[in-house]
Nucleic acid binder design. Structure first.
Lengths: 231, 231, 231, 231
DNA sequence: TATGAATGAGGGTTCATTCAT
DNA sequence: AATGAATGAACCCTCATTCAT
């Protein structure tokens, strides 16, 4: 169908998408603030600046609206994980990309990250089996990266890949959820860098005081700061 | 007043406590299954095998019943944290005790842990300022252990104590919440041991393959890191 | 049945009456404070210092307890009205006795008067046909006094006796209900006298400035104060 | 915005007002019949011929609906009292206007008058401090009229203005509440005239047989009291 | 598309009453 | 006579969803 022949169609479709996006954003914000259960359809409509009857024109019901949000999250995450696993990165870079995805999404769409963590990642409440499947898939894909790291001797093998995955994602999520809890935004890319490095550092090198470094420091004047470059 | 003289009194009091406990358990189970919001007082009553109104004989309202559960959790956790900070333990032992508390509570009362994680730790929905205070207190107490570790040079100091705390608790929580999510129970103390050690190992020594150590081992220089095997 | 033979019976009966009276008083107080609907049986029991199950030992149910209160009021009022109509009083004295009964009962049992006014006299809410009968009877008995006054040419006849009755009782009740409203007690017999006289004065002589008196004053040096003696 | 261009707008607004009025009437009727406490929101909805939830579309809750009724009453009464105090009337005319307001409102909206008397004027049960303020204001405004009468020597000064106010309003209210109680409607303006005159007559001139007047009439001396017939 | 009036199932809570002890 | 645990019907209110306009 030619756009030239039916310019209104395109505009109409675009308008539809626009309005859908407006509702989507409103839902994101409202659900973040109140949680899925306490967020009322009328709250979302008011936030979107439309009548609440109209929400049902674009989304069948509240659950569907919720799933639309989740799908956006999953689409993004699965896209990233696909890029990562297909791309030519070493394991550390892959993990860093995953961390970056969480942090960057939190920067650009903090509500989405919040909803993922509070309503899905840590809640059995809204967990339909359909939604659980997505969750398990994301776990499995991340685990593949971890397992690859073990295979390539970048990650220790004396702990199950699944356990390492729990800890890796746990560190990322806790960081984000605590920032959400205290309503702290990531201030600029510099802070993002620092957080990403910290997570990766602790996960990869551990929290233990690296006495080895001190020795090397003594021997090679390597300062603890230089150590950070390793991350 | 002698118990011998008033045996019924004692039984009555005991019966009262018993019934309260029955309702408490039912609430634990129901809230775990459905979440606080979807858990109906009638569900809890049915689960407890009592009439609807009787729940209100023992608990003022749903919110109070919820707080009773949370208080039990916080009482246990704060008790443990007090024991830990007062006790004569090194930092690693202290962290291990904290991990053990989570794991053991999950073994004995998985619902309690689940409710803590899903409804409080990762949700702003039910977070009254009163409840947030408890949460912050637990963070601060754990951070004190972490900070002590930094002071004693057991933990790295180039990352803020608060950040390390997030990661430590995050790892523990993710472990537990994922087990909750897939409804996996801890099978015996052996598995508990393995999980606790894994968490501690990764947190303290990092997930990275410790090539440095191997070298130093080869060279015959026993680095402190080599005692990793003890974990 | 001889009291000597069954002394305990008497004591038991007396005790029963005592406990009944305690509950009665508690009901009076509670219903006055909260109104019949908002007064809970448990409130009454707590006020009486007994368990709430016991209330049902002495009164079948809440309605019966309420009726017991009303009956006490009606018994007193009908007793007074009987005394008044049988006694050798002129109409003014009879009306004065009625006023006194209200005021004195308000002095000794303000709650009873309050309940009568708020729950019965001015409320269709609690009015069963059975209760309405009592109300009508009291109206009719008072009207008889008024009608007698008209017959004896003490009261004007150009207004229906029933209308005069409304106004007479209306003045009394408004006085009392307003005192109840502002929680004002009658301070001593002197104030009671003044109120009783005021009501009677206005009812009998009217609120209008008594210019006639001024004339008589002029003629006979009768002061306005002396006019009060007429009431 | 032209009404011609948007006729539906006007109709919609009108419809909204209509429905609100329907609910208002239903509430009036139901509360009159059952009292505020026993009146159920479902009763009101059924009486209005609408669904349960719709009541909450127009009124926030039961209290608000109740207050809407009271406000209508107070608005009318305060409007009348303002007119009266500003208008060029003598005191008797002012009192007559007040009486008329009660009687006419009872004719046109008997339920409103009933609710005022039973739920507010004579009941502490529903009396919030906010509502008590209105009540006191109406007392004060009426007292001002009475006090003016005393100042102009139309009303006796040996009784406190407040006491006279109690008696005046008491007479009016008792009349109305008793009519409500026996479900008696005012039959036509003639009866209204008679009642109004009776109340005013008794309040101003008293219930006593006016022998004095007759004498003065006989003597040919037209006293002010003789114009009583005008009442 | 767009509105918001209309519906009604269902939830938390109250409390009169019963009953086992 | 006395207790208070136990019951459950009813109430107020919420809010997702439908539908007439």
């Amino acid at each position: 169908m030619s756009v030239l022949l039916h310019p209104m169609r395109k505009n109409a479709a675009a308008a539809k998408k626009d309005k859908e996006a407006v509702i989507f954003r409103a839902a994101l914000k409202t659900i973040t603030e109140k949680g899925f259960h306490k967020a009322r359809m009328s709250d979302i409509a008011r936030e979107a600046g439309i009548s609440y009857g109209l929400v049902y024109h674009y989304f069948n019901n509240k659950e569907d609206l919720f799933d639309a949000i989740l799908n956006r999250w999953w689409d993004g995450l699965f896209g990233l994980l696909a890029d990562v696993s297909e791309g030519d990165y070493d394991v550390r870079q892959k993990l860093r990309h995953i961390i970056d995805y969480f942090l960057e999404t939190y920067q650009s769409e903090p509500e989405m990250v919040n909803i993922f963590i509070t309503e899905i990642s840590r809640s059995t409440t809204n967990l339909t089996s359909h939604r659980l499947d997505y969750f398990k898939k994301s776990m499995t894909l991340t685990e593949a990266v971890i397992a690859e790291g073990q295979k390539r001797k970048v990650l220790r093998t004396d702990i199950k890949a699944r356990y390492l995955t729990y800890m890796f994602l746990g560190a990322v999520e806790t960081f984000l959820s605590t920032m959400v809890l205290v309503d702290q935004k990531i201030k600029g890319d510099a802070q993002k860098e620092r957080i990403a490095k910290s997570i990766l550092k602790v996960f990869l090198n551990g929290a233990k005081e690296q006495k080895i470094n001190k020795k090397s420091e003594i021997r090679g004047r390597k300062s603890p700061v230089s150590d950070m470059k390793l991350c």
